[in-house]
Write a protein that binds this DNA or RNA. Sequence first.
DNA 1: TCTACTAAGTGTTATATTTACACTTTAATT
DNA 2: AATTAAAGTGTAAATATAACACTTAGTAGA
Lengths: 252, 252
Amino acid sequence: MGLKSVSETKLNPNVSVDCVIFGFDSEKLKVLLIDRGQEPGAESEKVYALPGNLIKTDENLDQAADRVLKELTGLKNIYLEQFGSFGNPDRLNKESDLQWLKSIRAEPDARVITVAYYSLIKIDQYELHASSFAKEAFWYDIDDLPTLGFDHLEIIEAGLKELKFKSKYEPLGFELLPEKFTLSQLKHLYEAILGTDLDKRNFRRKILKKDFLIPLEEKQIGVPHKPAQYFVFNKKKYEDYRQNVDDFYFQL
Amino acid sequence: MGLKSVSETKLNPNVSVDCVIFGFDSEKLKVLLIDRGQEPGAESEKVYALPGNLIKTDENLDQAADRVLKELTGLKNIYLEQFGSFGNPDRLNKESDLQWLKSIRAEPDARVITVAYYSLIKIDQYELHASSFAKEAFWYDIDDLPTLGFDHLEIIEAGLKELKFKSKYEPLGFELLPEKFTLSQLKHLYEAILGTDLDKRNFRRKILKKDFLIPLEEKQIGVPHKPAQYFVFNKKKYEDYRQNVDDFYFQL
DNA sequence: TCTACTAAGTGTTATATTTACACTTTAATT
DNA sequence: AATTAAAGTGTAAATATAACACTTAGTAGA
């Protein structure tokens, strides 16, 4: 049985979830991929994938995403946000993908629609523990991705677009940075996501005006330059803010 | 077999699409619902639904949405945008919904995940022709909805939220108004969606500054007041605009 | 033909937001 | 003591927003 064994509850053969986990390492934006552990017949190129799998019949989509992510990468308690569904009949057009499905699925030929989730986390705050059919989980630089199975490249691109977009009208960063952090770190985060440089003074002014940041007395120590002040998030204000995205901005 | 007969290609028993079609009649915002044609056992309340059905195994999600909408309401060539997936195991918690499924589905008990689409159209530009299991299709005032099956109320609310949100950072109106239209008509459209009043002068200034509107020489005739100037959309600029939503606004 | 009615169309001012831009400060390192 | 590195700070100009009321061009009816 091995890989084909499943837990007590039944799998829905036609619906899966995939997780696009973006990671920030204080420097660059990365994405989490798994090694499916497939030994290519010959020396064909290795193919990576997003952590994802079929949903169970007794869980909802959000629960499935949480479970699958945990099963494959060890990550848990991550806030996942749904951003789209992907269901082209030709999602499954690579021979290597089909081979792989045959090794893990009861119905490898079934037409699968996948519901995609994304999150953005602080890389060094979480430890990866690949398991189930994931041989290993890795962080890949967002602009240097390996070959991906199925339509996972398309899914990642859609997720990145969503992330960039969201970052423009919602505050980001909570849970993404250390408990206490400097404004430079927060600025770097935005710059990594948006792929642009931001003006230091304007950034500070803007982010401090919204008041979901609380300045601490504490400063950096041991740095070979003027030490930066630490800040923490005001979680309550921050949550309020996200709730009201709706009223937040009226463009036209 | 009647209702249970299906066309040549197989249905995926676990995945459906639902369409939230918002309609604008120059006055109010409405949503399109179908009468499932169910005769309640007793005099129990009539239950309405969004146009939606299972997808076929050989079509993608967008195609399924187009097809299902056309089959149930006669509407075609409508731009549908996906906005979310809904898949709580308890979507199916009303007895009347189960009864109804038994009358039309091969596997009425199957766990179904639905992918939701929305659109916004000009009501009097389209004719409704209910068919398949839809006995009739109606426009309902968005703030006076009848009893709805499944989780369709939740889906409509999510769709409306999306629509309001989108209207704040994307130009709306193309395909929603007559070929040529007045600024008042466009303003009414925004007011209907946002549920607020807008200042005439500020609205004009703002919308004219973006230049996706082309003024015509032509004016209204026969109106018992100063005739309004007609405008048409500059489709090219308008499309550019939507493409670049990404760079469009940088809030933080 | 005059009057009343209706919606279209128009401009200004005060306030808030955005952008661009360069020097001083504080620490560690040599 | 001099060097290096990033933190931190202010201003002015340009742009965007919000609030607000009167005139105009037509129809309809007296």
